[in-house]
């Protein structure tokens, strides 16, 4: 196998690939078959080459070959997507939005009612908000365990996920799920699988905001 020859072949194909859209299926199939054949030969060349630098050169040709192949594969995937688009079930966006609004709004109304209750009990406004969060979290934990929050989530979608109850649901459901793998590798390791990103980036965001506040003062 000649290195320069091989390189030229790849360059020529690169030019042909620029006009991919005008090519017919038979030509594309032919090209895929040739690419496969060349890949195999290149891998063998690379493996039998004892010189390190030349081996790297062969490897570069091999990578070019792979890039061309992936271009063809992407093209085929796009073609396929056109076919799929007409058959894929439509997502009921409007209905989903209305449900999410109702459920999310309902949870927030409940939260407000709880705040008002704690204020009536003589607790300061700021502290009452914290108390309300705790109340909602405990309530969600209970509803998750009883299998009721699953139904609320199925109906409400994002509406049940975004408020703090969604966070509590994700933690409690993970705890329930992984208790069979034990307290350490099960619950201990997996309890925050869903909620982990919220915790990490929530803390990170609060640090950034704290810094901004510090600079502005």
């Amino acid at each position: 196998m000649n290195f320069i020859n091989q390189k030229n072949k790849l360059l020529e194909r690169e030019k042909a690939l620029a006009n991919l859209k005008t090519m017919d299926q038979a030509a594309i199939n032919q090209m895929i078959a040739t690419l496969k054949k060349e890949h195999q030969a290149l891998a063998y060349q690379e493996a039998s080459e004892k010189n390190n630098d030349r081996q790297k050169n062969w490897h570069q040709l091999l990578k070019q070959n792979e890039n061309q192949m992936s271009l063809l594969n992407q093209y085929a995937a796009v073609q396929y997507q056109r076919l799929v688009k007409s058959t894929a079930p439509k997502v009921p966006v409007l209905a989903n939005t209305l449900r999410a609004f109702a459920v999310g709004g309902g949870i927030c109304v409940l939260g407000q009612l709880v705040i008002n209750y704690w204020i009536l009990q003589g607790i300061e406004v700021k502290t009452a908000a914290g108390f309300a969060s705790v109340t909602i979290v405990v309530l969600t934990g209970l509803l998750t365990g009883l299998g009721i929050y699953d139904e609320i989530g199925r109906f409400g979608g994002a509406g049940s996920m975004v408020p703090i109850s969604g966070f509590a649901n994700s933690v409690v459901s993970a705890a329930l799920e992984f208790k069979r793998e034990g307290m350490v590798y099960g619950i201990g390791a997996k309890i925050f699988t869903v909620a982990g990103p919220v915790i990490l980036y929530g803390i990170l965001a609060s640090v950034v905001i704290g810094l901004i506040k510090f600079i502005m003062m």
Binding site: Q40, A41, A43, Y44, A47
Partner: peptide
């Protein structure tokens, strides 16, 4: 893949 390709070649 390399192993398979080399064996084929």
């Amino acid at each position: 893949q390399y192993a398979l390709e080399i064996a084929l070649e």
